[in-house]
Every structure is written in C-alpha cells, then in structure tokens.
Amino acid sequence: MPEWLLKDENYVPQGDKDTFINKSILSLLGVLSRIRAQGGYKTDRLAVNPTLKVGFTVLLVVLLSISRSFAFVIFINVYLLAALCLLKGEEILKILKTSFAVAAFTFIILLPSVFWGNYYSICMITPKVFATVTAVNMLSHSTKWNAITGAVKSFFVPDIFILVLDITIKYIFLLGEFSLNMLYSLKLRSVGKNGDKYTSLSGVAGTMFIKSKEMAEDMYSAMECRGFTGEYRRYQKIKFTFADFLYIMIHMAIIFVFIYLERA
C-alpha cells in the first residue's frame, strides 16, 4: 500500500464551472423518465384506437394552423381543456406545464411585433401554439408509444420503418441509461477544476458512439439468429368500440365548427 493511501486526504477543493454535466444529466433524466413511464400506462383512459388518435391529432394541428378565426382557436382550446379532464392529475400537470412554457416562449418571441402595431400575431399564434402543443402532448401522454408508432402504419408507412422507430425508442433508453451513468461517474470524479472539459465531454459522447456501434452489431447477430432477413410485418387488431365512435363524432363536430366559423 502506498503511503498516501493510508492517510486521509487533506484536500480543499476549488470551485469549477461545470454545470454542463448537471444540465446534461437533467435532460437525459427527462427523456428516460418519459420512456420509463410507458410501462405504467393503463389503457382504460381515452381508450380510443391509436390510429384514430394520431390521425385526428394531425387533423387538429392542420385545422389550427390554417384557421383565421379567433373563435375557432378558442373553441379548440376549450375542447382540449375539457378532454384533458379525462387524464390523471400528474399527467395533466406535465402536459399543461409544457403547454404554458411553450406558449409563454411564443408570447415573448412575438412581443416585439406588438410594438410595430401587429396585434394579430400575438393574439392568434400564442393560443394556436398552446392548443397544438397540448394536443400533441395529450396524444403522447395518453397512448403507448409502440401504439403510436404502429398507428403510423395505417398511413402507408412501410413496416420496416416502424420497426426502426421502435428500435430507436428502445436504444434511446439503453444508450441513454449508459450515458447517464457515464455522466454520473464523470460528476463523481470531478472533484476539482477540470482543465479540459471538452475532452471529458467527448469521452462520454464518443464512448456512447462506440457503444452504439457495438450494440448495433450485437443486435444484428441476435436478429440473424432468430431468422430475420429484412422482412418485417406488424400485425394490428382492428376493433371498433363505442369510444372510437364518440371520438369520430367529436371530430366531425370540430370539422363542422371549423367550416362554419371559417366561411365568413
């Protein structure tokens, strides 16, 4: 045993500006917890066929985007708030947090235009952005993600592409956990002033890349062992429930309101 190891270290650290580690950890944690939450979703809420959900959410986004009627934008916002009531409290909180944050950002971005006498933009685009973000986040918070990627199939997207999407989500999680632990370890060992932060950061990101290559090779071998030849079919059960019927009716009504309000 070397002598220094037998004594306690008498060390007074210097401060260092290395918030990039904490910030990277936080953004990774955000993504990972979103994916982890997938395991906990129950299907009893908004149990509408995911294809319908994806389709009508996109429709809603299109209608909002082309609408010139303030009344329609407000109508959609009210509808979304009402629909939001069907979700769980914590989900609502997460969705609304994002919506308000994005809307506030939009408001600030558009604020200068007010000084040029343009009130239309800030009045229309801010609530439109709020509604769009709410609609998309409602979709992603109330639907299992593999159902969303599967729903894309109904829009003539090849099956192999959906497989790639699912693999991407899975590997975002795997590689994300890996890099999260690397960042933790970087953080634990950053006990003083890091003179070369770029080398550390590139070590983490570069190792993630090498690891991703290795994982890809492993996955390919595993798939080959299971007889994968590049053909992939995604099977879907199509059931039509009362909830689906209701959902279609609501959106028919929205289209009707849109036409009614825009005709002027």
Partner: peptide
C-alpha cells in the same frame, strides 16, 4: 444489406441523445 436496416435505429437513437448533451462554453454557461 437489407437485413441491416434496423441498425439505423441505433444510429437514430445516438443522434437523438447527442442533442441532449450540454456543451460547456467560456464563462460557465452551456
């Protein structure tokens, strides 16, 4: 090869995660 197409998913996951990284800038910001 066609059978290697799914590997693109791993590349996509990498590109997604790369955008999560914060890069240190002079003065302690990122």
């Amino acid at each position: 090869t066609k059978a290697k197409m799914p590997l693109l998913g791993v590349g996509a996951a990498f590109s997604f995660l790369i955008m999560m990284f914060n890069v240190p800038l002079p003065g302690g910001t990122t």
